[in-house]
């Protein structure tokens, strides 16, 4: 466990020293820009817009960090050949993969916390401190980002970088469209196509489960039970992704 932690910490240190956190500045500019842009609206509408834009920006930039962070965490070690020295140390290949997952999770977490803190600060500045529903939304976004990161990491153990990026973004987009996909499947006439699409629907994680911001922005409540089950759903997918990563990396020649 300690070795996984050390590898994770080193991955995180790299992102700090290579100034990955600068992406937060872009997030801040978007949120500040949005708050200025919607200042002509009523106070209530402006808050809704700020929340909507901020949640979307936290999720989108977080997804970018999760995908590129995971991609670089693995392929960076292989391309720079630093992995040669690392794997000859007394560590298991599983320590390396899980360590990388810890590192990427730390990167996602710090970016997420900074962006969320900025967003919450803005809400407080607008004299509308966040309620528990805002925190539920943020919690689910965080688990979605961790899941996205773990899937990219798993893909990186057996695919090329280019294929990994395409797949990760494909899954990110399709994962947000799966709710519409279900309707589409029901309307399909071809049994084969319905079967294939149904299989895809089952395999692809439904990222829309993590999206409760549309409800929260308009003032609806989401229960803790829903949040809990969705987190459990995310953890299940995450475990499958890590298991796939371990399986392929154990067999991979460097």
């Amino acid at each position: 466990m300690k070795k996984m932690w050390l590898i994770g910490l080193n991955t995180f240190r790299e992102s700090i020293r290579k100034k990955t956190l600068y992406i937060i500045l872009i997030f801040a500019l978007i949120v500040i820009g949005a708050s200025k842009l919607f200042s002509f609206l009523t106070a209530e509408e402006e808050l809704k817009m700020i929340k909507d834009v901020s949640f979307s920006a936290i999720e989108f930039f977080g997804a970018l960090i999760a995908i590129f962070g995971s991609l670089y965490a693995l392929s960076g070690e292989i391309e720079r050949r630093t992995i040669y020295t690392l794997l000859t140390k007394p560590i298991r290949r599983s320590d390396f993969v899980i360590g990388k997952f810890f590192g990427v999770s730390m990167i996602i977490f710090v970016n997420f916390i900074l962006a969320s803190a900025f967003f919450i600060g803005l809400l407080i500045f607008k004299k509308s401190p966040p309620d528990i529903q805002v925190f539920k939304t943020l919690l689910l976004i965080f688990f979605e980002l961790i899941l996205i990161g773990s899937i990219t990491l798993a893909l990186g153990t057996f695919t090329s970088d280019a294929f990994n990026i395409i797949c990760s973004f494909f899954l990110y987009i399709v994962g947000h469209l799966t709710s519409y996909g279900k309707e589409l499947i029901e309307r399909m006439e071809s049994v084969v196509m319905r079967g294939l699409t149904d299989m895809l629907y089952t395999l692809v994680p439904n990222y829309e489960n993590f999206n409760i911001r549309d409800k929260i922005v308009v003032g609806l409540d989401v229960s803790w039970s829903y949040v809990g089950w969705t987190i459990l759903y995310g953890i299940l997918y995450l475990c499958i992704a890590l298991e796939i990563a371990l399986y392929f990396f154990e067999k991979r020649e460097i």
């Binding site: 080193n10 240190r13 790299e14 020293r17 290579k18 720079r80 050949r81 630093t82 040669y84 020295t85 000859t88």
Partner: peptide, 12 residues
């Protein structure tokens, strides 16, 4: 172990 043309974490 010392690999050929060693590359290390250049940010350290």
């Amino acid at each position: 172990f010392l690999p050929e043309n060693p590359y290390y974490y250049d940010y350290l």
